[in-house]
């Protein structure tokens, strides 16, 4: 039983990281209809940016993280929106999906060729050691990850629901035309979404890289899990991403320990297929009307 609970806990920690990536993914989709197939690379790039600031510039970790956030907001937020998304959105979803696929290949290969194909170690952000909670023992890293991810999600929820800007962003996500009629600066709000996505990806990078190392293809798995987490939880719900992420992380861990580690990567797909058969709008999602 203690083993089981420990597996659940560490699964929840990795799931919380999936949830951060999934959250950014859902926000982009809601605000601008962008499906970002380079979401995993959006996590990988800040990880390498942090490494760069740590090693080359000799910055402490907190400074490296802040600088990486700024770089991510500039390039993966603003740059991505202006260079790739804006010109393509009017042509529909498919060209944009292809462009983000190309972007994913390009970014990965750039890091592989320009930096290294090897996995790079990354400094720990939480102290080593185990915390005893009754009979189970959990690592400080897992506790810290869950706390940070949880705070970010709650903070984002509060921002979206309680502040004027946040509510304007939600209005844009729900109905762009009505939002414009109400005098909301739609372009501004969409830009905020892209910036928030870049920051969420940077936080995910900070949390995931110490354990999983920085590698050019580290985004493959995170990106895919983020999609699934988003859909499992409900594509149009911010809370859904959290639930989906944690669910995927926990089930993966249990599958790896009790059934077969070889098929761990298949868990998210199975869960996704089951969810869309029985509840296509996702566990917490609401069914959407179609516009004719």
């Amino acid at each position: 039983m203690a083993d089981f609970l420990q597996l659940v806990f560490s699964g929840a920690a990795i799931g919380a990281i999936y949830a951060l990536a999934a959250l950014g993914f859902t926000l982009l989709w809601q605000a601008s209809g962008t499906i970002n197939f380079a979401q995993g690379e959006f996590v990988m790039l800040p990880a390498f940016a942090m490494l760069f600031f740590l090693k080359v510039a000799g910055a402490p970790l907190w400074l490296a993280f802040l600088l990486a956030c700024v770089v991510a907001m500039l390039i993966l937020g603003y740059g991505f929106k202006v260079v790739v998304v804006d010109p393509l959105l009017k042509h529909g979803v498919i060209p944009l999906v292809i462009a983000t696929l190309g972007l994913s290949i390009g970014l990965k290969s750039a890091v592989k060729a320009g930096y290294s194909a090897e996995a790079q170690p990354f400094p720990a952000i939480f102290p080593d050691g185990l915390l005893a909670l009754g009979t189970i023992r959990v690592s400080y890293a897992d506790v810290g990850t869950l706390l940070v991810a949880g705070l970010i999600v709650v903070g984002l929820q509060l921002f979206l629901n309680r502040t004027l800007t946040g509510r304007a962003m939600q209005a844009v996500a729900q109905n762009t035309e009505s939002a414009r009629v109400l005098g909301i600066d739609v372009k501004q709000m969409v830009l905020y979404t892209f910036l928030i996505n870049a920051v969420l990806a940077s936080v995910a990078a900070l949390l995931v890289t110490p354990a999983y190392l920085a590698k050019f293809d580290m985004g493959d798995s995170i990106g895919l899990k983020a999609f699934y987490a988003a859909i499992i939880g409900g594509f149009n719900q911010t809370r859904g991403a959290l639930l989906g992420g944690v669910l995927v992380g926990v089930l993966e861990n249990l599958m790896g320990a009790y059934v077969s580690p070889a098929y761990k990567e298949g868990v998210a797909l199975m869960l996704f297929l089951v969810v869309i058969i029985f509840k296509p709008e996702g566990l917490l999602g609401k069914a959407e009307e179609r516009k004719v």
Partner: peptide
């Protein structure tokens, strides 16, 4: 080593 990168960004440019 760079060819996949060129290829990936070429796809983005082509789509745009």
């Amino acid at each position: 080593n760079w060819y996949l990168m060129v290829f990936g960004f070429a796809v983005v440019a082509l789509m745009v």
